[in-house]
């Protein structure tokens, strides 16, 4: 019997932790879409879940996914096409799971590769922030240059929310940035 849970996460590590908590309770994720998770009953703690932001060209991506399969990990949902949609922001988040009986499951096991993964996430947020801030300021500028005409009020109506959205992405990037700094400091003293 499947169970649907509607929930939304900003922090992928919290999402991952939640999926593993659900798995520990005997609910294994089998399918997901925007803020919607479908679970199926399974043995308690049968699977370990991991999330990854992929940034590879399609050829390399299929190479990588095959590599993951070889190591006993499977994509959720099973047999998903190479480009699984997960968020509006980007389409390359993937969820993997592996049977806990095969031992601890981690995608990144050393500091360098963890930093790289966080940096990918950070870059996505920053590019989105930059894009929104540029579009937003452009709208505000247009409005200020054309104070005489009422039609340019539309630029204000468009510009302000877009700028707010841009700031939102900056805000999202901050915790990721802190994690990168923490790992880099760690790397100064140990591998």
């Amino acid at each position: 019997m499947s169970q649907v849970v509607r929930k939304y996460f900003i922090d992928f590590e919290k999402e991952e932790a939640w999926l593993n908590e659900m798995s520990a309770k005997g609910l294994a994720l089998v399918e997901y879409s925007w803020a919607r998770y479908v679970f199926e009953e399974s043995a308690k703690g049968e699977y370990i879940y991991r999330l990854e932001l992929l940034e590879k060209d399609p050829k390399e991506e299929s190479d990588y996914l095959q590599f993951m399969e070889e190591t006993g990990a499977e994509r959720v949902p099973a047999g998903a096409p190479a480009k699984a949609k997960r968020t509006l922001i980007n389409q390359r988040w993937v969820i993997f799971r592996r049977k806990a009986s095969e031992g601890p499951f981690q995608i990144y096991s050393d500091t360098d590769s963890k930093i790289k993964h966080y940096q990918r996430i950070h870059n996505v947020y920053l590019s989105l922030a930059l894009l929104e801030l540029i579009i937003g300021s452009f709208n505000i500028m247009l409005m200020m240059l054309n104070t005489s005409s009422n039609i340019y009020k539309i630029n204000l109506i468009v510009g302000v929310p877009v700028i707010i959205l841009g700031l939102f992405f900056v805000w999202l990037s901050l915790p990721v940035r802190r994690k990168i700094i923490r790992l880099k400091n760690e790397k100064l003293i140990r591998e």
């Binding site: 990588y64 590599f67 981690q106 096991s109 050393d110 590769s113 790289k116």
Partner: peptide, 11 residues
């Protein structure tokens, strides 16, 4: 002791 993550190994 050393369990390589698949992503780390691939890279």
């Amino acid at each position: 002791r050393v369990e390589l993550g698949a992503g780390t190994l691939y890279g």
